[in-house]
Amino acid sequence: MERGLLLPGSPLLEVNNLRVEFTTDRSKILAVDGVDISLERGKTLGLVGESGCGKSVTALAVMGLLPRHASISGEVIFKDRNLLKLRRGEIVKIRGNQISMIFQEPMTSLNPVFNIEYQLAEVFKLHRGKSGKEVRSEIVDLLRTVGIPNPERRMKDYPHQLSGGMRQRVMIAMAMACEPDILIADEPTTALDVTIQAQILELMKELQRIHDTGLLMITHDLGVIAQVAENVAVMYAGHIMEYSGVRDIFSDPLHPYTRGLLNTIPRISKKRTRLEEIKGTVPHMSNVPPGCRFHERCSERLARCSEETPPLSNVNGRTVRCWLYK
């Protein structure tokens, strides 16, 4: 119904100038600083960067799931509404219904004291007003779709009776139960074995294709990005550093940080024996470095880099934040 109203190509979700700062006893942590991203129906945006650069915080801000000590500004536009301005009673109707999220830790993301059926039924109850026996067959179907064998029996199981891969399938089932417009996946495969990883990614792509879901895939693994994403946003220390199509990112990375990340993935063709690491670590955001946030680790640093912060700018139709392209 509402889907038809959206113009083709117009973004499903738009995050504009998002800024998140945590105030703790001792310090202020600027976790996200002016992030712009947008997500289209049926398309996947990869959000990539090292640990601690603000990926999860960005996602949680979209979901309205940040703790109270976070101060948030900017806008998150979904279906003409700014989610950051919604009252609690309204955002809970969107969560798990139109926008869903799955998390990195399948072992701890399901409630240990409720069985799988209860945890899935809850979603239907919350958003479809259905309960009990009405949804049993839907749950069975759903579990079958995500590849859980013997769903009639398995749904009586408690989380501790399932393997990590199975639990992540249950999480996916839960997230997709209401056929959301948007699925945010925060490192959904990081904790899993390589073979299971591939299966889970395959499953997510399949469900995305069926339901035409917009997918925000958060990862620090460019291999995952290569498999699923059309567009990529490279994030570093709360900033978007580079934002472009997945082909460009891999064939012609502009930002030195992107190049650094690419050097960390093994490539058979180049016969590298040792992977290169990016030297140094992500700066802690209680103490934001002046100038370009990456300058302490950048091998192509210019004089101005440690003083002036480069803006995100357009370079031949691509978006990058670096003084090399000015």
Binding site: R88, K93, R95, L110, N111, E122
Partner: peptide, 26 residues
């Protein structure tokens, strides 16, 4: 502060129910 509480919130469970059902039983 457990992950499954975040999951419950992400499902759209209201805060009171998160506290009195999902959290309290644990």
């Amino acid at each position: 502060s457990e992950d499954y509480i975040r999951t419950a919130r992400a499902k759209g469970v209201r805060e009171n129910k998160v506290v009195f059902t999902h959290a309290l039983k644990n």
